[in-house]
Simulated assay, not measured.
Amino acid sequence: MARLPRLYLPGCSQHIIQRGNNREPCFFNEADYKAYLSFLKDAAEKYRVAVHAFVLMTNHVHLLVTPSDEHGVSRMMQAQGRKYVQYFNYTYARTGTLWEGRYKSTLVDAENYLLTVYRYIELNPVRAGMVVHASEYPWSSYQGNALGKSIQLLTPHELYIQLGKADEERQSAYRALFRGRMPERDLTAIREATNKAWVLGSDRFRAQIEAKTGRRSAPLGRGGDRKSAVFRENQNQ
């Protein structure tokens, strides 16, 4: 089956997954993580892409970003990817590809899913059993979004800013979002939308995206809205 073209809309947030080839490690030590973040920061600034959340796992990366134009995300990923592969191959005396084909992405309905995707990304190390709490993992945006650590790469989304009138109030409200486990329906919705290049959002949001892009935003005959009876039934199977 042919791959669906990626969707890009200026001002619309995207969840991105970039995996290592054959699920092999992309990071071996602290210097590698720092190099990736540095290249990403440079590329994000150059192509005017706001990075709201990230996590660097051993063999893959998650990002939540908002581009200023329709080409920003693809150019950012191409630029930082090229630089990091050059760095990685030189450092470890290797050749060839590092990433597993093209990165995967989905448009995110900010009103219904944005903060859920923040949480999904920063809880990856917890779900993987690497740490007990997101605060213990050093290579994610949780350190900045929840604890106030200065991370120059990060640009807070408007909905994050609305969590409070001051930094401490926003960080406290953000930490509260991490109490308890994420509902399985949210995990499934995010994974399916991102891996299959569908749109993550309500029926209304998906209809708006289809009207703007002329491309289907969800598989035929199946709903993705968390409020859809069909969607809830599918989650229980």
Rank of each mutant, 00 (worst) to 15 (best):
T97Y: 13
M130P: 03
E100Q: 14
A146M: 08
S74K: 08
A146C: 12
V117N: 05
Q86K: 12
V108W: 03
E122H: 09
R94V: 13
Y103I: 03
Y87Q: 08
L114K: 04
G81F: 00
A79F: 08
W99M: 00
W99H: 04
V108I: 13
V117L: 08
A93S: 14
W139P: 00
R82Q: 15
N112A: 12
R75L: 13
L153V: 02
R75S: 11
E111V: 10
A110W: 08
Y113T: 12
Q143E: 07
W99Q: 02
P125G: 04
T106L: 05
Y142N: 09
A110I: 11
K104T: 10
S74Y: 08
A93D: 15
V73W: 01
F88W: 12
E111M: 09
R94D: 12
Y137I: 04
S141P: 06
Q152N: 15
G129M: 09
N145W: 03
R94T: 15
M130G: 05
R102E: 05
K83L: 12
E136A: 13
E100H: 07
V126Q: 03
Y142A: 11
A110E: 15
Y103N: 03
A134Q: 03
T116N: 10
L154F: 06
S140H: 01
R119L: 02
Q78F: 11
Q78S: 14
A134E: 06
K149F: 10
R127T: 11
S140R: 00
N145Q: 10
R94M: 14
Q143S: 14
E100A: 11
P125I: 05
N89T: 01
L107I: 07
G81V: 02
S150K: 15
Y103R: 02
K83R: 12
S150Q: 14
H133S: 09
Q78H: 14
P138G: 05
D109R: 11
T91R: 15
N112V: 04
G144L: 02
E136Q: 13
L123S: 07
Q152M: 13
S150V: 14
E136P: 08
Y113L: 12
P125D: 04
A146R: 01
S140V: 01
V131H: 05
I121L: 11
Q78P: 07
Y137D: 04
R75T: 05
Q143I: 01
K83E: 10
Q80L: 15
R119M: 04
F88G: 02
W139T: 00
P125C: 05
Y137C: 04
R94Y: 12
L114D: 03
A79T: 09
V117E: 01
Q86M: 14
K104V: 12
H133C: 06
Y120T: 06
I151W: 05
Y120A: 08
L114H: 05
L154R: 03
R94P: 06
L107F: 04
R102Y: 07
L153G: 00
D109W: 06
S74L: 06
Q86E: 14
V73N: 03
L114E: 02
F88I: 08
S140T: 09
D109T: 12
R127V: 12
S105Y: 00
